[in-house]
């Protein structure tokens, strides 16, 4: 379903590649966690899969498409094969739950009859039946993420990417969200979830791909993974220099307060 062959991505004006020579294969219907610290290249990897970013080296094949040779006009058809969920939900605040989910169908030109039948169905699947008319701000974080998942899944894409979907949620709610993704996975959808929520990763016992500074450092089969294999934070025990008295600086407001002398000197420099 997804095949990385020695894929490298270097952002412009960056010394170090965000993804460095990653090779791996994710099969149809798999559930895969991608873990690693911030800046380890998890998000970049997901963005490469949906061609939000272009790889600078290597071969990347997604849903039968060679991404380095995919012309721009065919990118939309690739994205129709991929559903996406994000940490910040990305719901439209002025649309109801129903409208948010229906929007994904509308922009693809789905007939009204299909929207009427599919949207309640998928809302029921994610456990939001009866909340169709609520607006995002009337929902809890977990509920909002369920709406986002419903929207990502309503077109039944074969691949679902989730970039830190539990990053803004309580641990209990996080587990519910991951269980929902697991249910979706059991319908045959390939799910790739980037996270650093190790409790959930441990609980789910799935395949885990571990990145460190863009390099693939671990690819552990389902069930073999525990948090223990993750390098713990290295303590920085260098002493912090004592705070030096800083000169007062003009705050730029004309509030009648006397301007400190330092500002005058500063402007002269």
């Amino acid at each position: 379903m997804i095949l990385f062959e020695n894929v490298t991505k270097t952002y412009p004006k960056s010394h170090r590649p965000a993804v460095n020579g990653v090779s791996l294969e994710i099969g149809r219907g798999e559930f895969v966690f991608v873990v690693g610290t911030s800046g380890s290249g998890k998000s970049t990897m997901l963005q490469l899969i949906m061609k939000e970013q272009d790889a600078t080296g290597g071969r990347l094949s997604v849903a039968g498409r060679e991404l380095d040779r995919l012309p721009d006009r065919k990118v939309p058809s690739l994205r129709r094969q991929i559903g996406c969920v994000f940490q910040d939900f990305r719901l439209l605040p002025n649309k109801t739950v129903h409208q948010n989910v229906a929007y994904a169908l509308q922009v693809l030109g789905a007939p009204r009859s299909r929207i009427r039948s599919t949207v309640p169905e998928v809302l029921d699947l994610v456990g939001l039946a009866g909340m169709e008319k609520r607006f995002p701000h009337q929902l809890s974080g977990g509920e909002q993420q369920r709406v986002a998942i419903a929207r990502a899944f309503v077109n039944r894409p074969p691949i679902l990417l989730a970039d830190e979907p539990t990053g803004n949620l309580d641990p209990g709610i996080s587990l519910e969200i991951v269980q929902l993704l697991d249910r979706i996975n059991r319908t045959g959808t390939t799910v790739v979830m980037a996270t650093h929520d190790f409790a959930t990763v441990d609980a789910m016992r799935k395949r885990v791909i571990r990145l460190d500074k863009g390099v693939l450092v671990g690819d552990v089969e389902a069930g073999d993974y525990t948090t223990g294999s993750i390098p713990r934070i290295e303590l920085d025990d260098r002493p912090i220099p004592a705070r030096v008295a800083e000169p007062a600086v003009a705050d730029g407001y004309d509030d009648g307060a006397p301007e400190p002398q330092a500002a005058v000197q500063g402007s002269g420099r």
């Binding site: 939309p76 094969q81 929007y103 922009v107």
Partner: peptide, 17 residues
């Protein structure tokens, strides 16, 4: 940009956007 971002994500064509 929110709307267009979602349109792009779900694979709306350039024309639709």
């Amino acid at each position: 940009r929110r709307e267009t971002g979602i349109m792009r994500l779900v694979g709306a064509s350039n024309f639709t956007i």
